[in-house]
Write a protein that binds this DNA or RNA. Structure first.
Lengths: 210, 210
DNA sequence: GTCTATATTACGATAGAC
DNA sequence: GTCTATCGTAATATAGAC
């Protein structure tokens, strides 16, 4: 599941690289099965070491989990936020953001599933820390955009609606395949992004009302 | 956590009632912590029996979990689907559905969280069974409504969008409290329903375009 | 830094008395 | 039907050799 550890000139594994390999394997496992669904044995087997080795790099399972979450989110978020910095009028920037985030979520299923697990966490301290570090920059950026393009709506509700339209279809992707009327093009992120932009722009009454 | 078991005339606990008490306690626990986050000992303690007693009513933990999910969903879904059967034009029925489902999800957090756990399940057989039994009736009903009120959009995408706008804000409710600009009225289901209906009707360009 | 070996606890599940 | 008692396994985590 993982490439062999890098060795230095004396033949010892370099701790920082091993740490990263552990995090990379942990992300995939935790994204698939959640905190309680993954054992330290599972992680160790995926990395290719014994469980005891993990405890040299992380004090316990919870700290490993939190480090893995931070590793994934800190790795991905800058790229997405960069898509917000594009030029153009607010609508163009919003369209760009929707397209970028939709494509990213579609490509990085670990990102999407880990976010789903994180949203189910009931620990207040962890939720607050994660909100401050991960969700807040997104939310603030979109909120200011939303205030520009849709000032007739409550900014919080509108921002949440935009994220809902993007994220929730991927949460349902696994069961949506079994729904009547589902066809594979529905899973293409570009088509979903186009649909969201059109719906946000015009609403359902687009052509029904003169 | 649970009221004492009902006894029959001879003083023996009635099996069907105990079964229901086990299911009720299981729903709350599984909704809070998920399948792997709840032990049979936890359930037994909540019910007020020993773990061994659970195995008289259910063959194993997985069957208990599936029965608990079915118990909750079969208990709630008929009431929601009834809200779809109201009279009026498609828009009035859609508005009614959005209001009913939003209010239900807000009131029944167990329902919302258990749905979130279920969406993370990777087992194809379980997902398909649950889709057929639970999600499909919802989806079909809304799809036909969506086709009536918004035939310029793809029916699958539009239906998914409607569910997204309703469900996702509640998935984020726990972290949303820590976001800047959040105020307690944002948690009122009626206000959220109003926002969703307005957004679906008119889109963001409602007043920006003459 | 990673290993072997193990302590300790928790888990799912069962046998058999009542 | 529920209990007590327990089996076998798997979990987190640590000690100490190398």
């Amino acid at each position: 599941m993982s490439s062999p550890p890098a060795k230095d000139a004396v033949g010892r594994a370099r701790p920082e690289e091993t740490r990263q390999r552990i995090l990379a394997c942990s992300v995939t496992l935790f994204a698939r099965s959640g905190f309680h669904g993954v054992s330290m044995r599972d992680v160790a087997a995926a990395v290719g070491v014994t469980p005891a080795a993990l405890y040299y790099h992380f004090p316990d399972k919870e700290q490993l989990y939190l480090a893995a979450v931070g590793y994934l989110f800190n790795d991905r978020i800058p790229a997405v936020l960069a898509g917000l910095a594009t030029e153009g009028d607010p609508w163009a920037r919003l369209e760009n953001f929707i397209g970028t985030l939709t494509t990213l979520i579609a490509a990085e299923r670990d990102f999407q599933r880990l976010m789903q697990w994180v949203l189910l966490d009931t620990d207040d301290a962890r939720s607050q820390k994660l909100t401050d570090n991960v969700f807040e920059p997104f939310f603030v950026a979109i909120t200011s955009l939303a205030a520009d393009v849709g000032d007739q709506y409550d900014a919080h509700h509108l921002t949440m609606s935009i994220f809902s339209l993007i994220a929730f279809p991927f949460e349902c992707a696994h069961v949506a395949r079994f729904l009547p009327g589902f066809r594979s093009p529905h899973e293409q992120p570009q088509l979903l992004a186009k649909h969201i932009v059109a719906l946000l722009r015009h609403g359902i009454f687009q052509k029904s009302v003169p």
